[in-house]
Amino acid sequence: MNSTALTPTQPITPDPPSRPDDAPYLGVGIGLRTAHYVEVLERGSRGQLGVDWFELLSENYMVPGGRPLRIIREMQELTPLSLHGVSLNLGSTDPLRPEYLDALDRLTRIASPSVVSDHLCWTGVSGTNLHDLLPLPYTNEVIDHVAGQVRRVQDRLGRRIAIENVSSYLSFNDDAMSEWNFIAAIAEEADCGILLDVNNVFVSAHNHGFDALKYIDSIPGDRVFQIHLAGHSQSGSLLIDTHDHPVTDAVWALYERAIERLGPVSTLIEWDDQIPAYSRLVEEADKARLIIEQATRRRGRTHVAS
C-alpha cells in the first residue's frame, strides 16, 4: 500500500486502550447493500463470506415485512450484525420520536446487533427531515443537549449506542472547541461509544483546515466502538463524503495511525453509490485486515523488545 507520510503529533501509546465490553472486536465488515443480497447469502451458505461481519442501515429494515426482514433473519445465521441509523436526529431541538425509537427497539430485538449507532448531527427540525447529516455548533449548550438525547435513547433501548463523527461542509462562528473535544465531551457525558469514521475525519479536516492526525490522536480510545472507512470525491475546493470510490491512500494512512494507537477495532468498509462487485469490497476489507494484523505484529515485537 502506498501510504501518505504522516507525522505523529505524539508518540504512539505502548498499550492500546482497553476495548469496551459492549463493543467486542469483530474484525472487518462491510455495509450490506441490496445489490449484494443474493451473492452474500450464497457465499454465506458455503462459509465464504470473505468478511467478518455486516452492518445494516437501520431505516431500510424498519418496514412491516417482505424481503428486508427475511434478509435479517438469514444474515443472523451467517455472521454478526451491526445496526447503523441515519435519522435518530440526536442533535435536533425536536424531541426524539417515540415511534422511531419503538421501531429501532423492535429492530434491535430482531437483529441482535453487536453495536447500534447513529450520527452526531441533526437531520431535521419542526418535524421535517432534510435526509442529510448536518453539523452542530461545538458549544457547551449543544454538548448538554445532545448528551441528554443520547442518554434517553440508551435508556429506551437498554444499551449503549455509538455516535459517529460526520463529514461536514460548513462550521459555525460560535464554535468554542475542536470537533474531537466536542464528540469526546458528549461521549463522556452520555456514557456512549464513538464510531470513528476515519474518512469523515479526513474530509472535514480538509474542508475546515484542522489537523486530522491530532483528531485521531485525541479521540478517547476506550470509547471507540467501531471504525468506518469510505471513499470521497473532490468538488471544487471541498471534499465530499460520497461513498462512491475506494478508500484513498491518505485515509488508509490515517486509519493505520488510528489502529496503531487504538489497537484492533471493528472496522467497516462503506460503499453506497456506484456500488462495485462484492469481491471488490472484500478486497477493501482485506486491506483493512492487513493493516490491523501488521499493527498487531509490530506491537508484539515492541513488547518483546522492551
Binding site: E59, M62, R97, T128, N129, H131
Partner: peptide, 11 residues
C-alpha cells in the same frame, strides 16, 4: 409536502 418520515422510503 416536505419529508416528515425518518426514512426516504416514505418521501
Amino acid at each position: 409536502e416536505p419529508s416528515r418520515s425518518p426514512s426516504l422510503r416514505y418521501a
